[in-house]
Design a protein around this nucleic acid. Structure first.
Lengths: 340, 340
DNA sequence: GACTGGCACTCACTAGTTGGGAGTGCCAGT
DNA sequence: ACTGGCACTCCCAACTAGTGAGTGCCAGTC
């Protein structure tokens, strides 16, 4: 059965009221607060249909209605208009991000900003290495048989690793190794470097084969294969708002899930370019997050995506507002990355 | 009034039972569980005295007794014997830390390990820059007017910053700058470098004064003065155990405090060499943490202290166990740092 | 056919009541 | 100095209405 205009309007009203008040909403209150031009009885009939269709439900007989996950989904897909940010919010974003001194700082500020604006838990993935390009490799001799490899990505991210060499090495040879490595790898996307790294060994002068082999092994292992992704988190205290009504009483599983970087990466790292993804309650694959919703989007300089960011909160959240905020922040950060 | 042997024994028993059961403990149960060789009535008299002295209290008339913060304090100072780690725990520590590939990884693993072993919130401060010594400075030309400065500390920590130069610079000049900087700064404790950095400008050849000035400004600003301290956190989910009985119902303030790095640094960063500090409830200066206790200690290679670590939990925590664990982990990590 | 007013019904929530029991303080006795 | 006994306190859990918001249904109206 198709839902006519008014039924959708009723659903929208229910979602909005419930999000605002956190209490099941009844037919009478609905008619009063939104100027639906019909009587409570009519609304009740509509509600019965909406419930039949699975968009709302009653916590118990003779209580008001509450949206189901499906209801939120419909609301997000069809009923919510994008809520443009206020001037104050835009200013807050700029002010917050403008003083960042380096990449770490940008990520840090971003995640706190998101948490503050949305009053939810915020998550920001550090610009992914595998999607970034190499700006420079630096080799720093620590001792005669030890070198520190420092990789600087185009996004500003820096990774370093110690390499033990098979034998002592001369300063000039280090310079040569540095030259070769940079010549071959700079400007490449990291995900595409493995074959190039292997080719490096061939490339090196015969005398430099052993140290180059040690180096390339480490490069492959740590910088390419084990592209360790990092995550920043803020606003967990926001979970404890709403006096435990959300999340059916226990924060435990949510907090646990939030500590698993792997889970967060799955949620916020898998973003398609320039689309905002909303996962509502049940739609989450992670068991422990079935009572939560997630708004995630990708970000990066220009149209490139180097990482994901977003917020996590109770299914009963302000979707239009949070979507708008997450998008806006992502765009700002993208611009910021494009500048540097 | 002096507390005789048995009264102290009673206090110890109360603390241990309360920590174990989370319920006020009565005289009868006490006599049964611990083999005090007296009757419940006698214990009641002792309890009355202990209450008078402020070491225990009754949640309400005709309930058992609960330790006060002062009671825990006395317990920690006088009554608790160090609880040696089990073989399994020692093995767990080793196994957990043995595979760490770099400093970040060490800190990461350590904080998770602590959270897991103590079942509390764990905090580890990254090895402090100001207390560390410089191993090497690297200058990486990004463009003709831009250099990236990379500082490698003895602890393995790496910091980097972009520097905009007043004018274009030649590769040879960069080499020269690098040489001078390293010559003067390597091996110094970072806290003592500011005068040396200023002297660098004098030191440089006249033609290199402008770029060196730009460099030293950044060095001072970011690497020395703004010695940004970092903190790793894990186990927040443990706060939600104990079903909200601890922390009088609201996790909110605790979670908020935990997000303030400044607060955590104050709590875990100010550690005297090789002493373990226990802060119990009221003793905390931070208002929001008056319902929590903290066990913190310093760590570092050998007898040096480069940072702090510890755990935070309800006042009702296993002090002897947590103290032992924190100490042991700190010692292991210290050894690890000494090796590298 | 769509909407409305009316009405009986359901059922969570609150407040008040009660009985039980764990625990206490006190006291007289050893 | 310690103990057994005893009256007392008072939290807690279970039960009992009473209340009211909200519903579903139905007959009536436009």
């Amino acid at each position: 059965m198709a839902l006519d205009e008014r039924k959708l309007e009723v659903l929208r009203a229910i979602v909005e009221d419930y999000v605002a008040t956190q209490e099941p909403v009844g037919s009478k209150a609905l008619v009063e607060r939104h100027n639906l031009r019909v009587s409570p009885a009519t609304v009740r009939n509509d509600m019965a249909v909406l419930e039949e269709e699975g968009y709302i439900r009653q916590p118990h007989t003779s209580a008001g209605r509450v949206p189901t996950d499906a209801g939120y989904r419909l609301f997000v897909d069809k009923l919510s208009r994008v809520k443009p940010l206020t001037q104050a919010e835009r200013r807050a974003i700029e002010r917050f991000l403008i003083g960042a001194v380096d990449l770490d700082d940008v990520v840090h500020r971003t995640v706190r900003l998101l948490a503050q604006l949305t009053r939810q838990v915020a998550v920001v993935q550090y610009p992914s290495l595998s999607r970034a390009t190499v700006r420079h490799f630096e080799l720093v001799p620590i001792s005669t048989t030890r070198i520190m490899v420092v990789m600087i990505a185009e996004t500003g991210r820096v990774e370093q690793r110690l390499v033990d060499l098979p034998g002592p090495i001369l300063a000039d040879d280090v310079t040569e190794l540095r030259r070769v490595i940079n010549e071959k790898l700079v400007g490449q996307r990291l995900a595409e470097t493995p074959p190039l790294v292997l080719a490096l060994i061939e490339e090196a002068a015969p005398g430099l084969r052993p140290p180059m082999t040690a180096l390339s092994t480490v490069l492959l292992e740590t910088l390419v294969e084990r592209t360790e992704e990092r995550i920043a988190l803020a606003g967990t205290a926001n979970l404890a708002r709403g006096g435990l009504l959300d999340f059916q009483g226990s924060l435990r599983p949510i907090l646990e899930a939030l500590e698993e970087e792997v889970i967060l990466l799955k949620l916020f790292g898998e973003v398609e370019p320039s689309s905002t993804r909303v996962r509502i309650g049940d739609e989450n694959e992670i068991e422990d997050l079935r009572t939560a919703s997630i708004v995630a989007t990708g970000y990066g300089p220009g149209s490139m995506v180097v990482g994901g960011m977003g917020v996590l909160g109770p299914t009963r959240m302000d979707y239009p507002g949070n979507i708008a905020t997450v998008r806006a922040v992502a765009r700002y950060v993208g611009d910021l990355l494009a500048q540097s």
